Amino acid sequence: METRVLTVDPEHPDPAALAEAAAVLRAGGLVAFPTETVYGLGANAMDADALARIYAAKRRPANDPIIAHIARVEQLDELAREIPASARTLAGAFWPGALTLVLKRAPAVPEVIAAGRDTVAVRMPAHPLARALLQAVNLPVGAPSANTFTRPSATTAAHVLEDLDGRIDLVLDGGPTPIGVESTVLDLTGPAPVVLRPGGVLLEDLQGVLPETTLAPRYLAEDGATDAPGQLLKHYSPRARVLLFTGGREASRARMQEETRRLAAEGLAVGLLLAAEDTAAFADTAAIEVLGAEGDHAAISRRLFEALRALDRRGVDTILVRDFGRAGLGAALWDRLLRAAEGRVVDAGA
């Protein structure tokens, strides 16, 4: 199919563009649109056939659930049952925003959205264009990230087209996404709230509202059964192999320098994802993408997926990156890097 692109002012979206996108969604088509986290690939969340088209377009395995996006808190009752009071509390504190709640699925919601399980993942995005689209279509919209399965998530319309051109109906180009990593996924179906995927809403902030919240991300094989999105170990991965270095700053730099020399001696092209403070130590390496200042996790998050895609475009064989800490947004960065590396972690020591 031909994929149309409509460039839209995210703050003041053109009503005609919104009406066209809403009509595509109501007809069972696929529309990519920006959220505050990454671009989503949307379909009518109440239409099993439309949701199946998402899986086909992304080449996404049927065991990986899809998040339903809503414009109004009242829509939660259309999608979930036995909603705990904690869900209303969290919605009041963090919606609209980068928080996804896993709840028990209402009977009317197609099971394909939850990979056949008895749950549903729901969030209310804060991005003005996403909110305007959801209000225009007046339906819950199922939307995973707008990329082919396991690839780095799309944070620009160009990334969407890189993966999905000719496979979806429409892209609303609202510019780059402001956060750059996906939403936090919080499971409320058990005895205590559990973060299954760290993301744009911080664990520390969740604990300020629900102190009993814990972090327990899962890193499952591709054929593992998942009850929430983003739990597979291979995820957000470039074509190049990724090695993630952890340990002290100087020790990690030294091990990365050593590995760069070793791989170059084997005739392999090496790419580096670096903090700005690390660049002087790798001045002789051709393929470098600077993520931002070491302590600026927000800047690093915005750049991460673009930088992974940029190194792929440069044809590198292996990408080296180090841990940037795990407090605050660092937890989400560690999670994305670990999945991009498919668990290949090098402990450099202190």
Score class of each variant (00 low, 15 high):
residue 303 R to F: 02
residue 79 L to V: 06
residue 276 A to P: 07
residue 258 E to L: 11
residue 176 P to T: 05
residue 268 L to K: 15
residue 42 G to I: 07
residue 122 V to L: 01
residue 303 R to K: 14
residue 5 V to K: 12
residue 140 P to S: 05
residue 343 G to Q: 07
residue 229 P to E: 04
residue 68 A to D: 11
residue 192 A to L: 04
residue 317 D to R: 03
residue 118 D to F: 06
residue 211 P to D: 07
residue 47 D to V: 04
residue 147 N to Y: 06
residue 26 R to A: 15
residue 35 T to W: 10
residue 262 R to L: 11
residue 321 V to D: 06
residue 130 A to I: 04
residue 235 H to D: 02
residue 49 D to L: 15
residue 296 D to N: 14
residue 23 A to M: 05
residue 154 A to Q: 13
residue 95 W to S: 09
residue 117 R to W: 01
residue 209 V to E: 01
residue 336 R to W: 05
residue 255 R to I: 10
residue 194 V to R: 12
residue 208 G to L: 06
residue 332 A to K: 09
residue 85 A to S: 13
residue 238 P to C: 12
residue 105 R to L: 10
residue 70 I to N: 07
residue 281 A to F: 13
residue 305 F to N: 11
residue 263 L to T: 10
residue 183 S to P: 09
residue 229 P to Y: 00
residue 307 A to V: 07
residue 270 V to A: 04
residue 166 G to W: 12
residue 215 L to R: 10
residue 65 P to K: 00
residue 161 L to E: 08
residue 260 T to G: 08
residue 322 R to W: 00
residue 44 N to R: 01
residue 286 A to D: 14
residue 1 M to H: 13
residue 251 A to F: 10
residue 13 P to Y: 06
residue 45 A to T: 06
residue 290 V to G: 07
residue 133 L to Q: 00
residue 234 K to W: 10
residue 130 A to V: 00
residue 312 D to N: 01
residue 268 L to S: 10
residue 308 L to H: 09
residue 273 L to K: 01
residue 287 A to C: 12
residue 165 D to A: 15
residue 159 H to T: 03
residue 150 T to S: 00
residue 24 V to G: 03
residue 327 A to Q: 14
residue 48 A to M: 05
residue 178 P to N: 11
residue 280 A to Y: 10
residue 23 A to Q: 08
residue 254 A to Y: 11
residue 298 A to I: 03
residue 291 L to R: 05
residue 313 R to V: 04
residue 75 Q to C: 06
residue 81 R to C: 14
residue 346 V to R: 14
residue 84 P to F: 13
residue 201 V to W: 08
residue 248 G to K: 00
residue 241 R to S: 13
residue 230 G to Y: 05
residue 40 G to E: 09
residue 74 E to D: 15
residue 199 G to A: 06
residue 120 V to G: 04
residue 247 G to Q: 07
residue 29 G to I: 08
residue 281 A to W: 12
residue 222 E to K: 02
residue 104 K to R: 15
residue 342 E to M: 13
residue 198 P to G: 12
residue 212 E to Q: 14
residue 36 E to T: 04
residue 89 T to G: 02
residue 48 A to E: 15
residue 99 L to R: 02
residue 47 D to G: 07
residue 291 L to K: 00
residue 32 A to C: 07
residue 295 G to T: 09
residue 293 A to L: 14
residue 102 V to I: 13
residue 131 R to P: 02
residue 56 A to Y: 00
residue 201 V to T: 15
residue 129 L to I: 03
residue 350 A to I: 09
residue 146 A to R: 09
residue 65 P to I: 00
residue 167 R to N: 05
residue 96 P to E: 08
residue 234 K to H: 15
residue 350 A to L: 13
residue 159 H to S: 00
residue 201 V to G: 08
residue 64 D to K: 06
residue 201 V to K: 10
residue 21 A to R: 01
residue 48 A to Q: 06
residue 307 A to G: 03
residue 264 A to G: 11
residue 215 L to F: 09
residue 308 L to I: 09
residue 156 T to W: 02
residue 98 A to Q: 12
residue 38 V to T: 03
residue 335 D to R: 02
